[in-house]
């Protein structure tokens, strides 16, 4: 399979994925889709890439995209990455992109004459993390299904499960990649925003190890999944595993331990005052107990092994 459609293509991960696909010899064409007004040259880095700007929250646009340019290109693989990345994007409009668009994209892909494979980029943050659960998170690990979870988490879990429900029921071959956190701008990384402050508070008495994936590795994992026929869920770890205090130090920030109960008000205050994105409620489990994704299945079936360490420089 060598003709691809990528949504969310204007992000750092989208760019890494396009580069990874182009480095595969048999890639014929890539239809890169985004909502942003960008200079075409930044996405169309090769004659085989074409950028399409459209608002995917409207099903009419989605239908037009799939049965217009996608059919013309004979797209065989859809790599779905479109979502609101910021925690502050809430309400029905955010839900429309995060969940409803994914569901509609999958349904229309099933009806499509040329699409054979659907790869969904999900997040390691969909997993529940607590002291009573394994530190090593594999595909069967419980998901964070708390009703009180922020919409940022609930939407991701719902979209992920929405795709997973089609396993074995769809004519498409479907893969869901739950990836470790990618410390990159515009990638939805809560940690990236957390590290944006000169002073980073962390829970007193806890210093969990956190696994991070580089954009290159995530792009490569998605490309491997796109080129494969393997179905199912794959957890995708990165090459960098470090304690939180060390991540803060390497980013050139100052780590200040504070009692756990103070974390929520401190970060709520920061969000209100500075309009930042980091939400302690999303990250409470991780900032206490860590949780590392187990890449055994991705390694044995997709041939993916993390290779590129994360660089700790914030834009």
């Amino acid at each position: 399979m060598s003709r691809y459609l990528i949504t969310g293509a204007t992000t750092a991960i989208g760019e890494a994925l396009i580069r990874a696909l182009l480095s595969c010899g048999d890639t014929e064409s890539i239809l890169a889709v985004g909502a942003e007004q960008v200079r075409r040259a930044t996405v169309e880095i090769d004659g085989r890439v074409r950028y399409v700007r459209t608002d995917l929250t409207r099903e009419r646009n989605l239908r037009q995209l799939l049965f217009g340019p996608a059919r013309e290109h004979g797209v065989e693989v859809v790599i779905e990455m479109a979502s609101h990345r910021g925690r502050s994007a809430t309400g029905p409009r955010a839900h429309a992109l995060n969940v409803l668009e994914t569901r509609a994209m999958l349904r229309l892909s099933e009806e499509h004459p040329t699409i054979r494979r659907f790869v969904y980029r999900s997040y390691g943050e969909v997993y529940d993390v607590s002291n009573s659960l394994p530190s090593l998170i594999d595909e069967a690990h419980p998901l964070d299904l708390r009703p009180s979870a922020p919409q940022w988490v609930r939407d991701r879990v719902e979209a992920d499960l929405g795709v997973c429900t089609r396993f074995g029921m769809s004519d498409l071959s479907i893969a869901v990649l739950r990836a470790a956190e990618c410390l990159a701008p515009r990638s939805g990384s809560q940690l990236y925003d957390y590290l944006g402050s000169e002073v980073c508070f962390r829970p007193l008495g806890f210093d969990p190890v956190i696994n991070l994936i580089s954009g290159e590795d995530l792009g490569r994992a998605l490309a491997l999944a796109a080129c494969s026929k393997a179905q199912g869920i794959f957890t995708i770890p990165g090459a960098t595993t470090l304690p939180l205090s060390e991540i803060v130090r390497r980013t050139g920030r100052t780590s200040v331990p504070v009692p756990g109960p103070l974390m929520t008000p401190l970060y709520r205050l920061r969000r209100a005052a500075l309009g930042t994105d980091f939400d302690y409620a999303i990250n409470r489990g991780r900032l206490h107990f860590g949780g590392i994704l187990d890449g055994t299945r991705a390694r044995t079936i997709l041939g993916y092994a993390p290779d590129v360490s994360v660089t700790f420089s914030l834009e």
Partner: peptide, 12 residues
């Protein structure tokens, strides 16, 4: 035991 990781300092 599963409660040990929840102990500040000692768990780490």
């Amino acid at each position: 035991d599963r409660f040990v990781p929840a102990l500040p300092f000692y768990g780490t």
